[in-house]
Design a protein around this nucleic acid. Structure first.
Lengths: 232, 232
DNA sequence: CGTCACCTTGACGAGTCTCAAGTTGTGTGG
DNA sequence: CCACACAACTTGAGACTCGTCAAGGTGACG
């Protein structure tokens, strides 16, 4: 895809509809482009906060903890806007789950431009509050839920975000590995695997191939999730 | 304390210094006041998102999970601004840890007013991003840290936020109970208690009385926290 | 069709929760 | 101001979930 195409995706997805052409062009001139292959961390050592729009593909936002422990803070898909802090208490990095095309801005430039359209600042505030809400949901999951509840909630959340309806249920193609799921839910890959097996043998899901999940019994999933919707 | 005094605390703490008198007065006319006794949930069933300024006292933001499980999402002290969503996936409630005086606004009115001073919207965005960062830190703690690391991190975080320097170290007067600490860290009260005992017998802290903590060995605490700064 | 990374399964152990007594602050009423 | 009463906290023993370590499977890719 060409840069103008990708930028257009950003514009329709992020900028307000009634934005002036002048601002639109300014954004276009400031926007930068990056492509990333699976596993790449394109903003490693950028030194500046970045605002990143996932134009195509999917990514994970990873926080590094001591002793090599990793915690995935968020997954991001097609059309998501992510803010990646450069200097926080830990090092955060955005890593491509599959081949990606990204539109990005240094945060300060982005906010400066946004200031010319107050609506846009509101918009950013709204997104930040939404991200906060999702993070809080995750906090509940990690603080108070069992492995089974976390997995059920994760599958429901993924179904909601990237699932497709088929004639006989909902299908998901997961771009992330078992390790990524584990690192997101605060579990080990073995526990994730065992929980998926449990759901499979209870006829709640099917897993044809490594990355596909078919939801056979959404009601059962919901009840297993601990009646709490959560973000993954 | 009188309402004007409390409002003044809000104004100096939250509003930009160079704000126009007109806006200042508008905020004052929209601001509402509430006092809360220990244990009160003053915004129960408010039905609207609220922006709350803790003028005096301290509060906890609690999320209710299934089967009576609770997760404390944040503690708030003197001078903190909290946003409480009315309708989220779970019910959140703000509960007073001790007697409090609060200045609050319905979120929509607050944002509308803020719109007249673009700086203020930025400011809110900044606060939201900071809250998000704290929440992410908490996510790491809950997902990947042991009980001992969580407690050590909690004490350091509290020392940072409400600690006072004395001649022989840092002292904290905790406004929250062991149960609150447990509900914040995703542990049980017994585990919290055992970890505090462990720190006490290692001469890292002293706990004279139920609510006081004296830090005797900050370096040891830091190393026990898993080298990760976190919010509580 | 072979190779390899990824995933699953199993056995075991560590860490945390649960249940059950004790103990100790703290606030209240005499 | 002291003693009492109660909630809050601490401590202990045992159970259970999940993590660790180790050994197979299996799907995806060249």
């Amino acid at each position: 895809m060409t840069f103008p195409d990708l930028f257009e995706r950003f514009a329709t997805g992020v900028l307000p509809l009634d934005i002036s052409d002048a601002i639109h062009l300014k954004f276009q001139s400031v926007a930068r482009y990056a492509s990333a292959r699976e596993g790449d961390a394109p903003f490693q050592g950028a030194g500046l906060d970045q605002i990143i729009f996932v134009a195509r593909g999917s990514t994970k936002l990873v926080a590094q903890a001591s002793q090599g422990r990793e915690q995935i803070v968020a997954f991001n898909f097609d059309g998501d806007l992510v803010s990646v802090p450069a200097k926080a208490a830990h090092s955060y990095s955005l890593i491509a789950l599959e081949d990606c095309e990204l539109i990005y801005f240094p945060a300060n430039e982005f906010f400066q431009l946004a200031g010319e359209e107050t609506v846009l600042v509101y918009d950013m505030l709204e997104r930040a509050l939404k991200a906060l809400a999702r993070c809080r949901e995750k906090t509940i999951a990690l603080g108070r839920k069992t492995a089974g509840e976390r997995i059920a909630g994760f599958i429901l959340s993924m179904a909601d975000r990237i699932g497709t309806k088929t004639h006989d249920g909902i299908a998901i193609v997961l771009p992330m590995s078992r390790r990524d799921i584990a690192d997101s839910l605060g579990l080990t890959i073995e526990t994730v695997s065992r929980q998926l097996t449990e759901l499979r043998s209870a006829n709640v899901i099917e897993t044809p191939g490594r990355s596909q999940v078919l939801l056979r019994d959404v009601a059962a999933l919901k009840s297993r999730a601990g009646h709490i919707q959560e973000a993954a």
